[in-house]
Amino acid sequence: MGTVRRRLAGRALSGSLALLGVLLVVPSLYSPTREMAVADREHGSLLSHQWEWSWGRVRVAGLEGVELRDQWNPFGLAVLVVLLVSGLAGVCVWLARRVTWGHVLGLVTVGLLTGRVLTTVAERLGRSLGEVDQGAAGLTVRTEMTQAGSLETVAACVLVVALVLMGVAAARSTGRSTLPAKLPGTPAAGTAAAGPPAGRAGPAGLRPVGEHLTTAPVSFDDAGAGGGGGGADTPATAGKPGRTP
Rank of each mutant, 00 (worst) to 15 (best):
A162V: 03
G106A: 07
V66Y: 07
W72A: 15
C157I: 14
V4L: 13
G229T: 10
E42V: 09
S86Q: 03
L83Y: 04
S31A: 12
H103L: 08
R41C: 07
G229V: 04
D70E: 11
S177A: 15
Q134C: 07
D221T: 05
L63A: 15
V66I: 12
E52S: 13
P74Y: 06
V26W: 07
T191Q: 09
A61R: 10
E67S: 08
A136Q: 05
R172Q: 08
R41Q: 15
G228C: 00
S173P: 00
E67D: 09
P27L: 11
A78W: 03
S177D: 12
G76K: 01
T215M: 09
L118K: 00
W51Y: 09
G175Y: 01
T140M: 11
A156P: 03
W72Y: 11
P241W: 02
A12C: 10
E52N: 04
G138K: 02
A9L: 15
D70M: 07
A12P: 00
A162G: 04
W51N: 10
H49K: 12
T140D: 13
R127L: 12
E35M: 01
A162T: 05
T3Q: 11
V22W: 02
S150H: 04
S54M: 13
T215W: 03
L118T: 12
P196Y: 10
V132A: 15
G228T: 12
R124H: 10
L112C: 13
A12S: 10
R5E: 12
G102H: 02
R7I: 13
A148P: 06
A216D: 07
G111F: 02
E35G: 02
G239I: 13
G106C: 09
T143C: 06
A169N: 08
S54T: 15
R176D: 11
V160L: 09
M36V: 15
A188V: 14
V110Y: 05
W55F: 12
G65N: 05
G15I: 04
T33Q: 06
P235F: 01
R59Q: 09
G10L: 14
V168K: 14
V58A: 04
A216E: 11
G15L: 04
Y30E: 15
V25A: 14
W72G: 08
W53H: 08
A156C: 05
H43P: 00
G239H: 03
A194K: 13
T100Q: 13
L107C: 12
A9D: 10
T215G: 06
G90P: 11
E144L: 07
R59W: 02
V26F: 03
L95Q: 03
L84F: 03
V22M: 05
G87C: 04
A18E: 01
P32L: 03
R172H: 05
V79E: 02
S219R: 13
L24P: 02
G62Y: 03
A156N: 04
R142D: 11
S150N: 06
